[in-house]
Design a binder for these strands. Sequence first.
DNA 1: CATGAATGAGCTTTCATTCAT
DNA 2: GATGAATGAAAGCTCATTCAT
Lengths: 237, 237, 237, 237
Amino acid sequence: MSSPITLCSIAATVRAKHARRKEARPGELLAAALDLFVEKGFAATRAEEVAKRAGVSKGTLFLYFSSKEELFKAVVRENISGRYPEWNAKLEAFQGNTADLVRLFMRQWWADVGDSRVSGISKLMMSEASNFPELAAFYQQEVIDPGSALIRRILQRGIDLGEFGPIDMQYGVYTILAPMLFLATWKHSFGTCSDASTRLVPEDYINVQVETILNGLCVRPPPASSPSQNPQRKLAS
Amino acid sequence: MSSPITLCSIAATVRAKHARRKEARPGELLAAALDLFVEKGFAATRAEEVAKRAGVSKGTLFLYFSSKEELFKAVVRENISGRYPEWNAKLEAFQGNTADLVRLFMRQWWADVGDSRVSGISKLMMSEASNFPELAAFYQQEVIDPGSALIRRILQRGIDLGEFGPIDMQYGVYTILAPMLFLATWKHSFGTCSDASTRLVPEDYINVQVETILNGLCVRPPPASSPSQNPQRKLAS
Amino acid sequence: MSSPITLCSIAATVRAKHARRKEARPGELLAAALDLFVEKGFAATRAEEVAKRAGVSKGTLFLYFSSKEELFKAVVRENISGRYPEWNAKLEAFQGNTADLVRLFMRQWWADVGDSRVSGISKLMMSEASNFPELAAFYQQEVIDPGSALIRRILQRGIDLGEFGPIDMQYGVYTILAPMLFLATWKHSFGTCSDASTRLVPEDYINVQVETILNGLCVRPPPASSPSQNPQRKLAS
Amino acid sequence: MSSPITLCSIAATVRAKHARRKEARPGELLAAALDLFVEKGFAATRAEEVAKRAGVSKGTLFLYFSSKEELFKAVVRENISGRYPEWNAKLEAFQGNTADLVRLFMRQWWADVGDSRVSGISKLMMSEASNFPELAAFYQQEVIDPGSALIRRILQRGIDLGEFGPIDMQYGVYTILAPMLFLATWKHSFGTCSDASTRLVPEDYINVQVETILNGLCVRPPPASSPSQNPQRKLAS
DNA sequence: CATGAATGAGCTTTCATTCAT
DNA sequence: GATGAATGAAAGCTCATTCAT
């Protein structure tokens, strides 16, 4: 029974298995690379470790990505999946006042993005943007700009409905963007190594940030006709 | 007139010239190191290149700083930690209301730190903290903790004087810290490569941030007995 | 007949050739390292030279041994520690009187260790122990202690059988150890450069030492019922 | 009063002081170098540390010794002061039996040489002989050979008086030499780092060695007409 | 003479990349 | 296609030696 046919079918099976794995390879490598790039940064991530985590050999990594730089670029491109349509839809459908919309947006962002591996990409881009300018431009176009537009529409809604005062649109966006990107960056830098006493609880951080953004630090006379908008504000300890 | 005095002064000159080099070295090395650390990050900066830029050989660098980590620490002390006494003194001496103190603080920070190469250190630490835990701990101790304490005192002043409402101290600090560190990080990442149209003007960014922090986005009835505290707020464009 | 077997055997051959190199490497490296350590000492032996002598590159050395210290330890294990079981077995199996066992032991040591490059390791450790405390501790544990134990068992055997008088065990061991280690040290120091007239013939040295250790220099009345145990003692010239 | 005369006399005083120190310099350097070479070996001893211990600058060391090798050679040559005439005289004058002479000699050697810094020279030569062959030859001529001759005369005395049996003279010498040189070498190698439990007490070591050399390990019928020659022999523990 | 700042070759170790199998 | 053994260019740091002062 050691006929050529048997050999062929063995080979076919092997080839099929290979092919199946082959198609999965890049994805497995990219996932492993994302984890490691986020955790250690670009320079400190060793190619061999990426390969090992993806379950392949070092040589195979270079079969799919001609260099570590190409791998990095692929990781970033791969992970910029637009969740924007979904968010835009939610924004359109929202019925309540805009302050609550801002609260919802920031908390949702943390739950969907900040608290997931994807926030690592932000940290990564912040860290490596200057080493990969084309990638940075790409990221700006694909992620930062749409995100800014989304925030801008929220602000505009507040202004249009008379809830928010007048504000510079270009910089007003950062009012919301900065605390979020800072949180993502911090979580992956000092957040991994600072002692427990100074460790930041993201939900509490977000709550304090959003209430300050909305109402400011300065005392103000209680608004005439509105229920407490600030149930989450924590008292000074 | 070939008096001992003359002899002494010759010796003094000689010594002085010799000594002057020695005394100048650390400063030259620190300046070179700051440049390169900011430009390339900690890990990617080669000791030899620092030396070359300071106009000395590799060995000389290690004559003055026992390791690359010590060099970095010295850069931080020279450019950041060392300035806290001055900043604290300014805080003590300030006479106006706390809202103006916050405005002053953030604008001064931009002028002194953010707008200089020094802000690159913040970005660098955000990028590399997780890879150099000892450096991260040092930075937290020498920079983050005193900085947080300083901000906390500002907030407490506002509360004590009845200008600020109650706020959680731990997270309230980030209200001021986050926009500044975000700006520093942004400037050294996307700021170096984003096209002119989206480029951020730091002074305007700071102004919008500080007014939002103080007064919030939400409209409020004008306070009974105070003139507009917000002359800088730019109008929506 | 192009059966799977043929295919398999081709693969096997390929694998074997590949594997053979890999399996041969450690041995080649250990041999090269032994040579160089003995010739130049631990500190003065450069990793690159070991690699070159083994016919590989610097990097390859560190593929098999994680550091120069580990390389040295492996050399010691390969050449010394690893042989104790064999030596212990010989000791257990020995049937004759203990004086002859001591003679056998010292001559065998010379044949197996002293007369080979391995004795250079003893000299090397004597020279560099104080500079490499971790290596010294390792050597003490892996070589000195088991060696002392072995000698102690020989002495104890002599005492138990009534052949040897009572002796302090701790220092009695040096009675046998010192002449051997001295010989090894001498061979690799003055032995390499002293002129022929004063050159020491190890076998003769060993013979004189062992007879003196056994019977002393002092004359003694011939023991009642034993033939001369000392046929090798050379006469004074 | 700032006359040239004053200047000259100041200069003269300075020069005198300089001259006085200048003559002391080489000695101070050699003493410092001896300590360090013995403690750390040739390669591990840093020129700067020798200079510092001698109280001069690194540059000055190279003013007196053109290289580290020359310094090493000078250290060895400096420390080979013949104590042989004195020892020879003592040997001639000794009245007791030769066994006691051997005991005296070995204990005296320990007190005079082994226990002093000079024994470091032996260790040093053992360690570095192969790197400095001319020096090794010199040392052999100046130290080893006269020492051997002295021991040979002691042995010959024992033979001539009928106290010692016949023995090969060339190798018999090592019977006494080996334990002493081993002790010196061991003291400066493992002696500095082995744990307290295995630490060797030199006087006890010498005692056990000398009694074994004289009387051997093997039991013997008590000599008919001699008082116990072996009061120091320690009992097995 | 004496100094000590400066040098730079040299060391161990790491890791992206290659290529024979 | 896939492997992993092998490579060799760096990198941080040391220290004998030099030389301007």
